[in-house]
Design a protein around this nucleic acid. Sequence first.
DNA 1: GTTAGCACTCTTTTGTACTGAGTGCTAATA
DNA 2: TATTAGCACTCAGTACAAAAGAGTGCTAAC
Lengths: 343, 343
Amino acid sequence: MLTERQLLILQVIIDDFIASAQPVGSRAISKKTNINYSAATIRNEMADLEDMGFLEKTHLSSGRVPSEKGYRYYVDHLITPTVKHKDVSLIKHIFKEDFLEFEQIVQMSAEVLSDLTNYTSIILGPEIYETRLKKIQIFTLSPHVAVAILITNTGHVEHRSFSLPAAIHATDMEKLVNILNERLYDVPIVHLPEMINTEIVFLMQQYLDDFETSYDYLKAVFFYEQPVKLYIGGKSNILMQPEFNDVDKIRSFYTMMEKEEEIANLLKNATDGLKVTIGNENKIDAIKDFSLITASYQIGDDQLGTIGLLGPTRMEYQKVITLLNVLSNEMTEALYLWFRQNK
Amino acid sequence: MLTERQLLILQVIIDDFIASAQPVGSRAISKKTNINYSAATIRNEMADLEDMGFLEKTHLSSGRVPSEKGYRYYVDHLITPTVKHKDVSLIKHIFKEDFLEFEQIVQMSAEVLSDLTNYTSIILGPEIYETRLKKIQIFTLSPHVAVAILITNTGHVEHRSFSLPAAIHATDMEKLVNILNERLYDVPIVHLPEMINTEIVFLMQQYLDDFETSYDYLKAVFFYEQPVKLYIGGKSNILMQPEFNDVDKIRSFYTMMEKEEEIANLLKNATDGLKVTIGNENKIDAIKDFSLITASYQIGDDQLGTIGLLGPTRMEYQKVITLLNVLSNEMTEALYLWFRQNK
DNA sequence: GTTAGCACTCTTTTGTACTGAGTGCTAATA
DNA sequence: TATTAGCACTCAGTACAAAAGAGTGCTAAC
């Protein structure tokens, strides 16, 4: 168990290191106004803290640097959420706007977050459990190509081009569109493939002359993996961090950022609430030098998406955690209002 | 005027430097099999070439490096287009595919280009002179919000949400959509605002009860600056270039790449054919260390867009110029076929 | 329990010497 | 007259040593 004094010293060291990015020495600490012990005492405590694994040295006679365990303890026990009024009111002010499309809400959140923190923000777009189909239309562009348009209750418009089978009859197509609109109205998007494979297939066999070709191109439109949308803000912010003084690090960072799939997966299994993952706690090698903070935003009872913030392990946890909490709440509220208005 | 021997030496130096990124010394040149002069002779010629401004030294006793004037001369007079069969057949093979949407064609071109060259490719999406409106639909999502969907002959689907004025009548809206579809069918997208301000306004005043509100929200849909679409490939390729050994350079590069507007403008005033802009010839400060090669791709008589390739001034001009020519031709052809099929 | 003091460690900076790659110039050569 | 060999010179890069600075650990005194 850590003593009061050890806690104090640990906190001061981490705070100092987060601010300066320089190893912290005993003398520097003993000079702080809230510390009334000599450098020698501090040194003894620091040695103990190091034995316990909270601190590290960069070399034998250097000052101390927080270990990942140190950051973990700091995040779990030493942080007191402090609200920066300016930031919070900025966020609140921004969400006052009237949003027509919820993509705007998400996109803007990513930008605000990266601007306020100078880290890289990553927002995983809302999952679409709540989204329901409102209308399907098919429009032929040429004898060989048609475009299907799906409109959802969220105002999302999805379109997909496909080749028209030469064999298909115009009347069949019309019938098909009618069947689809009748049966699929207000069906959640996620249930579409299932519905088509059961009810719709049955109806199609019953009413359509050329079942086979119709079914084929129906699949082209509905059965595809909906790619999750990632909103990334401040990709180059992280370059300003002093730990990025090495070209190789930058290279590997940008190579990683191009793999949107992996990043999406990282955010996907975020639990409810706020989660901090420090350095090697991350499952993906590429970000074992980073810390990732995630928070989920919601609407109704279903989780919708995740906000993430990626920075060096030497991150301003205190500030960032507060900010992320505020933002996820504001987003949740804004989305709630938006959905209520557009349901 | 340059002598034969000077031309030869200049060419060898630039070729060598492009390949190695190291200053080229007189001895290294005299050892080449196609050079039969001693190092001393080469030195004299190099001194002359330097006096004429084609070469530079990095310091007093270093080897020579091409100046921007040197590159310019090289590009204008010393390059013989050499076709790398493997690359060309790769490009041709890729364009064999059947494209449903022309965005695919452009997007893929950007990727191929950056993959083959290891530079950063930037493609300015096709201007839309040729694009014509095929269908307008308006769909109300809620009492307050509607979404307008515009379908063009190119298979492009554009949608825009807007707030519904409380005052508008359902019948008015229906009438309006009819008017629009009747009058705007097959009208080039670029002429839409003009048409609306003349013919459509007139019809609206004649047939609609509530002209004012209808006109207001019509404007929200049609009068907006169509943002030009930029397709960027291989953003991190340029990091692999040895001139990017400096963190500050990387920072300024990425800061620049975030300003899509400026980049788009750079490409916009590309003339017909192929154009090489070297270092300080570029108008924007941010890329005065880079070379930009642009080519236009076309369909019919109207220019459609620009392909650009951004790399260090020490660029593989010979290879890249050939490649860009091949690609712009293939793109033009692919787009031509595509448009013919979907007209 | 706390602190002053000192020896020790390691990084960083500065200075010096050396090496290697390359140049410019001069004088000899073809 | 054009070319080349030879040599003195320049500069970046490297290696090494010495000195300075920051910090530690430990011991002995308070």
